[in-house]
């Protein structure tokens, strides 16, 4: 059941990304381009997502555990460290440069726009590299 639920969740997530227009890098970059052809759509995507997730999580917090899994894996870290800030800063540079973040890049991959064939393998390599660096 956990596998089926995970598959469904990924599918709904992907459909959300497509319908919202976030699988299109130009739309993301235009959100970031306040001085140019500004397209505020991404703010509505985040707003819509948070409007559902925030109350949804709040309700779930009152429950003892998930339906199929063992426990809720709520992240526990609270400290604002250099790793968080530098990681987020580097992520932002890449996001601005390509207009893709991990979710939309995966969703756009089967559309087979040639760019994603460059972006996604490099992204996976970047993740492995960060894990190696973080382990040292």
């Amino acid at each position: 059941m956990t596998i089926a639920a995970a598959l469904l969740s990924g599918l709904v997530f992907g459909l959300g990304l497509i319908i919202s227009g976030m699988a299109n890098p130009a739309k993301v970059q235009n959100f970031l381009d306040i001085a140019g052809n500004w397209d505020p759509s991404l703010a509505f995507v985040m707003g819509g997502a948070i409007a559902v997730t925030l109350p949804g999580y709040k309700l779930l917090r009152q429950r003892s555990g998930p339906l199929f899994g063992e426990r809720f894996a709520w992240p526990g870290k609270t400290e604002l460290d250099g790793r968080l800030i530098s990681g987020a800063a580097i992520f932002g540079i890449g996001w601005g440069l390509g207009g893709f973040c991990p979710g939309p890049a995966l969703t756009a991959l089967p559309v087979a726009a040639t760019g994603t064939l460059f972006f996604v393998p490099a992204m996976l390599a970047g993740i492995v590299l960060a894990k190696i660096v973080a382990r040292r």
């Binding site: 992240p75 870290k77 790793r83 968080l84 800030i85 530098s86 990681g87 987020a88 800063a89 580097i90 992520f91 932002g92 540079i93 890449g94 996001w95 440069l97 390509g98 207009g99 893709f100 973040c101 991990p102 890049a105 460059f118 972006f119 996604v120 393998p121 490099a122 992204m123 996976l124 390599a125 970047g126 993740i127 492995v128 590299l129 960060a130 894990k131 660096v133 973080a134």
Partner: peptide, 14 residues
Amino acid sequence: AAGLLVGFGAAFGN
């Protein structure tokens, strides 16, 4: 290059 930065930054910054 963008992919490398996105992957590294996201994994490093959790």
